[in-house]
Amino acid sequence: MRRPEPVQVVKERRDAALAALVDRVPYIGFLGVHFDRRGDELTAVLPYTETLIGNPALPAIHGGVTASFLEVTSIIELGWVLLWEEIESGTRPIEDITPETLPRLPKTIDFTIDYLRSGLPRDAYARARINRSGRRYASVHVEAWQDNRTRLFAQATGHFLMPAGDG
């Protein structure tokens, strides 16, 4: 029987894969979004800055920031599931994960954002759930909140075109 891998090796592999996936997208850096990982579960974090404001009188986060945050979270979740499969099945050693060998990112077909309450000037969090993922199309639901996990300030549903596989 194979011995289990040392926990540090597992963590380093997963963190390196996630960083490779996220760091290559300039717009994620522009927004300042980063991802917390617990096992395979991702939580997107949007730290508050004044440039994210859409209505200075309130102030409230721009609806376009909320839309961007939700779409980024959905695309990374889809990309992460593809990548997880590769790194955890052992088909691709982490040394082989470079910007050139990463799976292509899914493309958004449509995205519908439901603004439930205004985004307050503080950090926001989001998690995406893949409701259906076929060979070509995927359907994703994503929720965002600020202070309370159960008090969502926005949610969205989107359809995505999955990157063409090898087969």
């Binding site: 300039p26 721009h62 376009g64 839309a67 961007s68 980024v72 695309i75 990112l105």
Partner: peptide, 22 residues
């Protein structure tokens, strides 16, 4: 800085959403 897919250099959909919303 607004690019979503570095393989193609295409602007991220989220930036287009922000433009549409504004």
């Amino acid at each position: 800085r607004f690019v979503g897919d570095p393989a193609t250099g295409v602007i991220h959909g989220g930036a287009v959403s922000a433009l549409m919303d504004t």
